[in-house]
Amino acid sequence: MTNASPRFPNGTTVAIGAILVALPWVLPSLTLASEILVVATGALSCTLLLGSVGLLSFGQGLYFGLGAYVSAILIRDFGMNASVAALAASVAGCLLAAAAGLLIVRRQGVYFVMLTLAFAQMGFFLALAFPKLTAGENGLGNVPRTTIAFGKFALSSPGLLYAFLALLCFAAFAIVQRIIASPFGSVLNSIRHNDNRSEALGYDVRRFKFAAVTIAGGIAALAGAMNTLMLSFVPLSAVDVETSERLLIASLIGGVGSPLGALVGATVLGAMSDFLSPVWPRWSMIVALLLIVVVLFLRDGLLGLGSVMGRHRKEAPNG
């Protein structure tokens, strides 16, 4: 994130909205566009943590999986509509992240990272250990296509489903942008720069980190609920470490300097996976290569590509 707090709404808000509207037109498949929204929302939770507070989490898949299971159970077993299920999943994600946050924000650096990874692993094995609740590795199926709210607007039409997911995705991005633009966001930014100095200024750094972890957990859980609405099914992979990696990689590739990076990263990853996999089964190597290039040369991800090229142009000798 930049040093000065950006305003909200701003050009990025408009760009996010425009991309959400454009995706179904630009991409060859509506389901691919829907999947990108899910990954983008999940990646946004990593962007919030890493870009705003400087916390690298390898465990966002835990909250993603929780959101997926909670929403599926609420829709299938309790007949709840999509809006209530998504909201309840987000609240559940916040609560779990708060519980985990009480422990993990006590540690910094690599210890923080390892704790997030350990919690993610624990979540995966818990999902395996309770097959009656999660259906284990078979995946939780028979989730009906519910309505958006009040028994109206059934999500059986792919267009309407995309519109609803886009709305949820936009809401998540707007919330994160609003947080970054708030005084609370400024404090998070100062903690990212120097948490000792922030503490010396009188801010309770742990409490701020705890709040960020909790909000990020809620956003990741919302993405999990969106995944359930899209698939009508929860695979065990929703809660595995690969999901955590995928969300983190999407945020890093896009760039954690702005929420827009999560959307850009998810779009690039989703499109690569769809277009390259029929051509070359080892396409994941290209993603790995891209990640290496981003980490080494594009600290602000693909979003920073323009500024890097501009800098090179300025530095190049005339003539």
Partner: peptide
Amino acid sequence: VQMDDQGDPGRAVRLTQDAIRD
């Protein structure tokens, strides 16, 4: 029609939806 699900049930469902619809 080869459909590479990448070992992911979620992706398999998505590809199936695409194949049916498109």
